[in-house]
């Protein structure tokens, strides 16, 4: 099986994996970058969110081979004011959804900055990042502990 080369958090990594291995499993089980979480393995929770070339994706539905040569950022490579904001606003409890929430929020903020609309956007292009916009745009990240208020506050603070 050909060796897979992945660029993660600015470093080159090699892994000997079959093509059916997801990016998530390569991270967690082959490279032991376990900060990225598996909550459902079916695209239905967002815990596995990572950034690829700055865009957020769910790594559980991503075959690792498909992402060779792309710039992958996981929570281990994130150094962002959101992280402290999450702690200060208590935007976490068990912490299992948290890396996904943070990666997702980083991707979301740059989507918004680039003018991408959401289902909550009435105008042609988004204006301010209102609480309703944050909640809609972050709906791909489920938090069973229900830390939603703190998460939204943390994002709001960093966005403004």
């Amino acid at each position: 099986m050909p060796e897979l080369r992945l660029r993660i958090n600015g470093e080159d990594h090699k892994a000997d994996v079959a093509p059916q291995v997801s990016l998530l499993d390569v991270l967690r089980e082959h490279l032991w970058l376990t900060g990225t979480k598996k909550g459902c393995d079916q695209g239905a929770c967002g815990a596995c969110t990572v950034l690829v070339d700055g865009r957020r994706i769910v790594s559980c539905l991503a075959l690792a081979v498909q992402y060779e040569g792309r710039e992958i950022t996981t929570i281990e490579g994130v150094d962002h004011p959101l992280q402290e904001a999450f702690v200060r606003h208590d935007g976490l409890q068990c912490g299992y959804c948290t890396p996904g929430q943070i990666c997702s929020a980083i991707g979301m903020l740059s989507e918004h900055a680039a003018g991408a609309p959401s289902a909550a956007t009435e105008a042609l292009a988004p204006e301010a990042l209102t609480p309703a916009e944050i909640r809609e745009r972050m709906s791909g990240n489920i938090c069973r502990c229900g830390a939603y208020n703190g998460i939204a506050e943390a994002i709001q603070e960093v966005a403004s």
Partner: peptide, 28 residues
């Protein structure tokens, strides 16, 4: 969904896409 022509000339197409799945999944 974000394309200005779609937003302007076919707004319901943009809305339909944005109401589906999530930001992460729509990026993929």
């Amino acid at each position: 969904a974000a394309h200005p022509v779609v937003r302007g000339r076919y707004p319901f197409l943009s809305q339909a896409i944005l109401l589906g799945a999530t930001g992460q999944i729509r990026n993929m």
